[in-house]
């Protein structure tokens, strides 16, 4: 009993988005919009949850009260973000448990960066600074997108990420200005994380398959290359100021536009890692699966509404 033809619905939908209206859960939306957005939010939620693993494993080793408590708080925020984002995705009709099952059986993706190892304490600094910095660039843009619940979740998330970025930067500065061993540790971690950070925003626009319609529908307001450029403008000067050596020897500024031009990272590696063959994919997913299976008794017990009667 549709009152409008699909074409007219779509037309009205696109007009709303062009006006800057937000789409809310009960509103009509094209199937493809619903699918793309579910995929996007679900992947974002997965990324928060998977990101908690490499960082969480360093909590027991964190040196000193300040770092220990800050890292617990940070990873806790990430788990909280996952919770918030799964709720946002649920407004599009997919239950959380289904999404977590898709994550652990490998059918739903998460950010590739979490398939790289955190070999030393300095890697925690780099993830907190470079990767959280990249996430903020991405999320600040995405929160202007057309889907109301996602935008609102992202607003809260970026607010908290700003603290993580501050902590991450503080940690990098501490190591970069510390003892010889700390400075070496810092540079080595930076070398490891530079290329994954470049890949964080996804392949160059000319290779990216999803971008055009997602932009028109306000799902993805800026392209991968645009986001990467924003990050470079923000971070390269700070990296230079800290005296860290950037492993991309070809990095330079375009004299006309002022844009940074990078040497393209190994995109074959990027696609290999996305498809499951990265340094840590198997291990991270196996751990997530183990946690899920070990929690099964708890979920079953908590689902039960009526408790057993008391004996006395």
């Amino acid at each position: 009993m549709t009152t409008l033809s699909d074409e007219a619905q779509l037309h009205a939908f696109e007009a709303r988005i062009a006006r800057g209206d937000k789409v809310e859960p009960g509103d009509w939306m094209p199937d493809r919009y619903r699918q793309q957005l579910t995929r996007l939010i679900q992947q974002h939620a997965n990324s928060e949850l998977m990101g908690a693993l490499p960082e969480g494993q360093w909590i027991p080793y964190a040196p000193g009260f300040k770092r220990k408590m800050a890292l617990i708080a940070k990873v806790q925020d990430e788990v909280g973000h996952a919770q918030l984002l799964y709720m946002a995705a649920e407004t599009l009709g997919k239950p959380r448990v289904e999404m977590i099952e898709e994550l652990i059986n490998g059918t739903s993706k998460y950010s590739n960066v979490f398939n790289y190892p955190c070999e030393t304490w300095a890697d925690i600094a780099m993830v907190g600074w470079l990767i959280d910095g990249a996430a903020i660039v991405n999320q600040t843009i995405m929160q202007t997108g057309s889907y109301g619940p996602y935008g609102r979740a992202l607003k809260r998330i970026t607010y908290e990420e700003a603290f993580h970025l501050k902590q991450g930067y503080d940690l990098v500065v501490t190591l970069a200005t510390g003892t010889r061993a700390q400075r070496d540790m810092c540079q080595e971690a930076f070398n490891r994380w530079w290329w994954p950070t470049m890949m964080f925003f996804g392949p160059p626009d000319r290779q990216s398959v999803h971008t055009e319609v997602l932009q028109r529908w306000g799902v993805k307001p800026k392209t991968n290359d645009e986001q990467r450029q924003i990050w470079l403008q923000k971070f390269v000067p700070k990296i230079e100021e800290l005296g860290l050596d950037i492993p991309d020897k070809g990095l330079h500024r375009d004299p006309d536009t002022g844009d940074y031009v990078i040497t393209q990272p190994d995109w074959d590696e990027f696609f290999r890692v996305i498809n499951g063959d990265g340094p840590m994919n198997r291990e991270r997913l196996a751990l997530r699966r183990l946690i899920y299976e070990e929690g099964s008794w708890l979920r079953t017990a908590l689902e039960k509404r009526d408790l057993l009667p008391r004996a006395a």
Binding site: I59, I72, V75, Q76, V79, Q83, I291, L298, R299, L302
Partner: peptide
């Protein structure tokens, strides 16, 4: 308690144990 952070059996308890740890 912080050994549950990021590894909790459900998200809600992951978060709760992280709070108690702090």
């Amino acid at each position: 308690d912080s050994e549950w952070t990021g590894l909790g059996p459900i998200l809600e308890e992951d978060i709760a144990f992280s709070s108690m740890a702090q």
